[in-house]
Write a protein that binds this DNA or RNA. Structure first.
Lengths: 189, 189
DNA sequence: CTTGAAGTAGACAAGTCGGTCTATTTTTAA
DNA sequence: TTAAAAATAGACCGACTTGTCTACTTCAAG
């Protein structure tokens, strides 16, 4: 599989579960079974490993969500599928995404609050990417671009809110509640 | 003001801006201008200082929000005021809450993912408290308890989503967008 | 078979971590 | 005024931090 990917996989898993500053490079190396020099052969610093982990998570998450939404008929059903998908995620039915510890990008921005930091920017880029995916599907049920933008925004806020509620409060049904609210927003009823 | 409160204030400010694991006890001491032994006189460990900081932020935030909502006529206007309040927060017009770095409780749960950890529990308790506040005001515009619960839930998700969008993506109008969506949910139009 | 790249273990550096301890000074109250 | 309480500076502890360096091994391609 390659040492580099081993490092990124292990780093992501540990960073996601415990936060980035709580995890030392030595722990990543030990759990990945890789020598220290190999890490600094592939990455110039811990920060660049962090960036790689964020990028990896971006692809992992986005591809999964896109596939799930595209697996349903275009329009209303595809949009609703997003909530079913994150519901599965919250309830640990998506091994690809690891156990649920909230949103890795939200958590990471909590540790990199400076919006100009490369890591923060990458997290923002991920959210923008997901928002675009939502907009694509929103257009299928809206008669104008403005309307699609507004619907995508509403669904996005509900989804983010559900992630937070599920993680902070441990509400495993947060996604279903968000879905019920979203359902009323998408015509036709 | 008391050394204890100096420590809690300083710790909260630093934890909020940089994350908890990124801030060492020595930095808190230096910026608070307090000796190390004094800290361990008031707190038995860093973790208990963290708990105190979370508790302090809970009161700071809740009292502020409650006051703002209660300053408006009961019902629809009080509910809408929540979005204006967080809009001011996002745009750094609430000195009490410091500069905006997202939600301290969400960020903190990103570093304390174990739901049984006292710090995580305190964050969950804060969110539950805010939810109850929302429910109180939702009852004023709803004809049944079930309806009030559902409305409060929708507004809560929109608010949490807006916080995330404002912080991660730097969208300073996220609260106003959430408000527009919420507005359509509250009868009478 | 050889050569060079890639990986290994582990010592090492310079600094920080949370936390303890001592010895001294300041503050508070009787 | 005096005695107790609280705060101070700073040494110290062992463990851990990111990152560098050396010396040795594994492995693949020509």
């Amino acid at each position: 599989m390659g040492r580099r990917q081993d490092l990124v996989d292990t780093a992501l898993r540990l960073f996601y579960e415990h936060g980035i500053h709580a995890i030392g490079i030595n722990q990543v190396l030990q759990e990945a079974g890789v020598a220290k020099q190999t890490l600094y052969n592939h990455f110039e610093s811990k920060d660049s490993l962090v960036e790689a982990a964020v990028e990896h998570r971006d692809n992992l998450f986005f591809d999964w969500l896109e596939t799930r939404m595209n697996s349903r008929p275009a329009g209303r059903e595809a949009l609703m599928e997003m909530f079913d998908a994150v519901h599965d995620w919250f309830n640990n039915r998506v091994p690809t995404l690891h156990r649920f510890y909230g949103c890795f990008f939200i958590n990471t921005c909590g540790e990199y609050s400076d919006p100009e930091h490369p890591v923060h920017k990458r997290c923002a880029a991920h959210k923008a990417r997901v928002f675009e995916l939502l907009k694509v599907h929103a257009r299928d049920v809206c008669s104008s671009e403005t309307e699609a933008e507004e619907l995508a925004n509403a669904l996005f806020l509900l989804k983010e809110g559900a992630i937070v509620k599920a993680h902070v409060e441990g509400d495993l049904d947060a996604a279903l509640k968000a879905k019920a609210i979203a359902s009323r927003m998408i015509s036709p009823h």
